[in-house]
């Protein structure tokens, strides 16, 4: 079976990024995964064990201090080295800033074509293909590469592969030329935002818009999200107004979500917002303007004042929870 190289990303906290397991799972579908980790010397034992639990049968560790001091340089050098040793059919990375830079630089360095923003991958009779969601889910396309090794970024999230017994590990020392890389002078981990589900994989997403009117009022949407065990989303207008951090933005230039239920509160439903949520199974909206475009795509629309409806909804949900329904 052919090898599939997976770029391993390490979070600011030093742990594996949450996308790692899903990447390994997709790689398992395409061939034999080789997890590639660039890390400073002596820091990788725990990460290698975790990669095994996430289903990596082989881990290639390239030890270099640049892994944490410079952007992408260590990862790209490690991936390029792994490509020489493991002759993969494809290289997979997440669509994070790190993943995109690694894949972009690697493709340019090695002259291989890219398959970007895959929501699914397939190996059809030896040809690796990717599925993409285009224009906010208006189209679904399949693509492949004409020749060469497929350099992919993955936009979906999901479950890890079954755990591998104990991964085969190869560790090398890598001399990385970082003169053409940006130096990291400080790292700030985003305050871990409660135990709300992450947006891309949440079953329910509750989003608030400009209609909330203020950061204080936005708490109404946060409470509703928490009562429903939902991910917290927002429109760009709500983000721009500072009600909620940018990482919550749903839409064209934000996150794409596809939950079982999307509940939009005080959101008009501009085309760019719809581009990030119109593939939800069920859409519910609360908006006082009966002509708001969001109602063109809702399964259940409520025309009314969110400031009266949300508190009622909140107490009804609490009563329901109390009654153990």
């Amino acid at each position: 079976m052919s090898n599939i190289v997976v770029n391993v990303e390490v979070a600011a906290t030093g742990a594996l990024r949450s996308t790692t397991g899903h990447l390994l799972q997709l790689a398992t579908r395409l061939g034999e995964p080789v997890a590639v980790l660039a890390a400073p010397a002596g820091t990788s034992d725990e990460l290698v064990a975790q990669l095994g639990k996430l289903g990596a049968p082989t881990v290639f560790v390239a030890e270099t201090p640049t892994a944490t001091s410079h952007v992408a340089a260590g990862a790209v050098a490690a991936l390029a080295e792994a490509m020489k040793r493991y002759a993969p059919r494809a290289v997979l990375a997440s669509n994070s800033a790190d993943g995109r830079e690694a894949i972009g630089r690697l493709a340019a360095r090695t002259g291989n074509p890219v398959l970007l923003e895959a929501i699914d991958v397939k190996n059809v009779e030896g040809r690796i293909t990717a599925t993409h969601s285009v224009y906010g889910g208006t189209y679904t396309t399949e693509s492949g590469v004409g020749s060469g090794i497929a350099m992919m970024t993955v936009a979906s999230s999901g479950e890890p592969a079954p755990a591998a017994a104990a991964p085969q590990v190869e560790v090398i020392q890598l001399d990385v030329d970082a003169h053409a890389a940006a130096t990291i002078t400080a790292t700030h981990a985003a305050p871990s935002s409660s135990d709300r589900p992450e947006l891309p994989s949440a079953k329910i997403v509750v989003s608030g818009g400009r209609g909330l009117g203020s950061k204080e009022n936005f708490a109404l949407v946060e409470q509703l999200a928490d009562s429903l065990g939902a991910g917290l989303g927002a429109s760009r207008a709500a983000v721009d107004a500072g009600y909620v951090p940018q990482s919550h933005q749903v839409g064209q230039t934000g996150i794409s979500v596809s939950p079982d239920l999307y509940l939009a509160v005080g959101i008009s439903g501009a085309i760019q917002h719809r581009a990030g949520m119109q593939t939800a199974k069920r859409i519910v909206a609360i908006n006082e303007d009966e002509d708001a475009p969001i109602f063109d795509i809702t399964d259940f629309g409520i025309v009314g004042d969110l400031f009266t409806i949300l508190p009622q909804l909140q107490s009804a949900l609490e009563a329901r929870a109390g009654a153990g329904v």
Partner: peptide, 18 residues
């Protein structure tokens, strides 16, 4: 990168509105 297939998703329609 070559596109092998493309299909359009049926447009959503409005449901109940109260």
């Amino acid at each position: 990168n070559v596109v092998l297939a493309s299909r359009k998703r049926p447009a959503r329609t409005a449901g109940r509105k109260i």
